[in-house]
């Protein structure tokens, strides 16, 4: 168990180093930072001085080490566009994205898993069939169209929910949260549903396929043959075996939800990291882009690590090998 965790941790470190190098190359090789920072009127001498001051004449290895060191110390540099420290910019945007992503994921799980189980246990029922068709339509429509449709229906026609922005936030330390007021939830619900809908259909179909396969296995047939109550067969024996592969996908999905909330955030003008990233692209704000890359990769790695450890907790075949 300790060895397993250590191994996963070391792997994660390698992934982060690789991502940091990518981010660094974006920063160092895509365009000339000095040209970005200065105007036409800057003299060649000033440019050379700036270049020397910023350490751009050092060997690549030295520059990369310095870059990684800064990242580790939490010094993410300054934005070209706003001249603010990037660390603070990201930190102020992070809660919005994390809350949006988590709520979207919860919606997809709370609806997707029971729906998957239901459609697996009654594969030929009318309700199952209509759910499957419905989700197929859900998958086929792009996220931004769904967002616009929802805005049109609930925001414009019915006027129940706000259509953009993030209202009713409460500050807990640096964390600005919208989870503690009704107003906050009202503005969160549309973007979260939009973001979670695609994941929901995926989760449902995955749970359904996996569960149907598990219900055909020998150990389920044996449990039926020895008269174990149906409730236990379905929700204890079959569901736990179903969840092993599903957890991997859900973990990857969560990473994806956070990384690709860009579209949803821009449709709803949600002040999260996705929106920040879009603004940075528009202004070729390379330092922000490269830090965004590192932060997102960090979340991916963290989630994967959690999934791997969760695996061990669920599957005794991984946990107790040493005593076998």
């Amino acid at each position: 168990m300790v060895a397993y965790t250590a191994k996963r941790l070391i792997q994660s470190v390698f992934v982060m180093v690789a991502v940091a190098f990518l981010a660094f190359s974006l920063f160092a090789f895509v365009g000339d930072p000095v040209a970005q920072m200065t105007g036409v009127e800057t003299s060649p001498e000033d440019r050379a001085r700036l270049r020397e001051e910023l350490g751009l004449n050092d060997p690549v290895v030295v520059q990369f080490t310095r870059f990684t060191g800064d990242l580790l110390r939490g010094d993410f540099g300054y934005s070209f566009r706003t001249r603010e420290p990037i660390g603070e910019m990201i930190l102020s945007r992070l809660p919005a994205t994390l809350e949006l992503g988590t709520v979207a994921l919860l919606i997809s799980l709370v609806v997707g898993i029971p729906a998957g189980i239901y459609t697996a246990l009654r594969p030929r029922g009318a309700i199952s069939q209509s759910m499957l068709i419905g989700t197929l339509i859900g998958v086929s429509i792009p996220t931004f169209v769904i967002g616009i449709l929802l805005i049109f229906l609930f925001g414009v026609k019915l006027g129940w929910l706000p259509t953009y922005g993030r209202g009713g936030t409460v500050e807990i330390g640096w964390w600005r949260s919208s989870l503690f007021t009704a107003q906050g939830w009202r503005s969160l619900i549309l973007p979260a549903v939009t973001l979670g809908l695609f994941q929901l259909t995926l989760t449902m179909r995955l749970v359904r396929a996996q569960m149907m396969e598990v219900m055909r296995t020998d150990h389920i047939r044996f449990a039926i043959a020895r008269g174990v109550p149906w409730r236990s067969i379905r929700y204890r024996h079959a569901l736990s075996n179903t969840m092993i592969p599903v957890i991997t996908i859900i973990g990857l999905q969560f990473g994806g939800v956070i990384a690709f909330s860009i579209v949803t955030e821009s449709v709803f003008q949600w002040p999260g990291m996705g929106l920040l990233f879009l603004e940075s692209i528009r202004f070729v704000d390379i330092p922000v882009m490269s830090v965004y890359l590192v932060v997102i990769a960090f979340f991916f790695v963290l989630i994967n690590l959690a999934v791997d450890l969760l695996y061990v907790a669920i599957d005794p075949r991984l946990r107790v090998r040493e005593s076998a």
Partner: peptide, 12 residues
């Protein structure tokens, strides 16, 4: 059943 490898629930 025939195959003892597969006829027990591996998670319990």
């Amino acid at each position: 059943f025939q195959d003892p490898q597969t006829s027990l629930n591996p998670l319990m």
